[in-house]
């Protein structure tokens, strides 16, 4: 019994210690003035985590918008309120689905790749040799990836929303025959730029920071063996998904839950 309590305490201490390491890691790698070289490294990572994730994010956005319109229509038509379809599609995308689904896709597509890449650099002693050359790998390897993720995910979220809304338009207006004017006007009457688009972007920024942070930290902190890399990659996806969904609840409660 005492042994079990001790193990639990030990485990708690380990978790706290890892959190402390992760926090220090975030501060050390993100604070500082970027150089010209740093900007170029950032650009390269933007290409890697942003541009290359675009296809999967946009295709998913299109399908989710189409499904939303289809499902929403069958419910709304029972109340004779199919004019409100645009409102329903836009609000569910902007407030909830775009930030969350884009972040989950991003964790799977870019986050796991970041972990594996940094982990492999650690396993092949590239990070150590960089340190020996006198270059801080936190600044050179980690910081550009962190900032690229932080910028790229909100952009991807915007793309997801736009494509999703047009996907809803395709199904709702072109296929199911909702009047085009009411699709857009019900949307414009109910969507508030600050409250809906703005809060969705805030969510997306928070998710971007958390997912990228988890990904690069797991890569930097892993045990440099092939098993360690595979475990860290899995951990990245699991932890970031849980963090995104949990934080989404907290943020939604704060933004739309009526505490103010």
């Amino acid at each position: 019994m005492i042994g079990r309590v001790m193990r639990l305490g030990q485990r708690g201490c380990d978790v706290l210690e890892a959190l402390g390491r992760a926090g220090l890691f975030l501060v050390q790698s993100s604070v500082g003035i970027p150089s010209r070289e740093g900007c170029y490294l950032w650009l390269r990572q933007m290409h890697f985590v942003g541009v290359l994730s675009l296809a999967i994010v946009l295709v998913s956005g299109l399908f989710i918008g189409m499904v939303l319109a289809l499902q929403g229509y069958t419910i709304l038509v029972d109340f004779g309120a199919e004019q409100a379809l645009g409102q329903m599609v836009a609000l569910s995308l902007l407030r909830e689905l775009s930030p969350v689904v884009a972040a989950l896709l991003f964790a799977g597509r870019a986050g796991s790749a970041l972990t594996a890449e940094i982990g492999l650099m650690k396993a092949t002693e590239q990070l150590t040799s960089m340190e020996m050359i006198g270059v801080d790998p936190l600044r050179r390897v980690v910081a550009p990836r962190l900032w690229a993720g932080f910028v790229a995910l909100p952009m991807l979220t915007v793309g997801f929303s736009v494509v999703g809304i047009y996907g809803g338009y395709l199904v709702g207006v072109e296929w199911l025959g909702v009047f085009e004017g009411s699709y857009w006007s019900s949307m414009q009457a109910s969507v508030d730029f600050i409250a809906d688009v703005g809060n969705g972007m805030v969510k997306s920024l928070v998710f971007a920071l958390v997912v990228t942070w988890i990904a690069v930290f797991q890569g930097y902190d892993l045990v440099p063996t092939s098993e360690g890399i595979s475990r860290a990659t899995t951990r990245t996806v699991v932890y970031s998904s849980l963090a995104v969904l949990g934080l989404d609840f907290v943020l939604t409660a704060l933004m739309f839950g009526g505490f103010s």
Binding site: T124, E125, M132
Partner: peptide, 13 residues
Amino acid sequence: RRRMGMLFQSGAL
């Protein structure tokens, strides 16, 4: 460390 060079076991290129 600028005055030191190190050759790693794996090369670490």
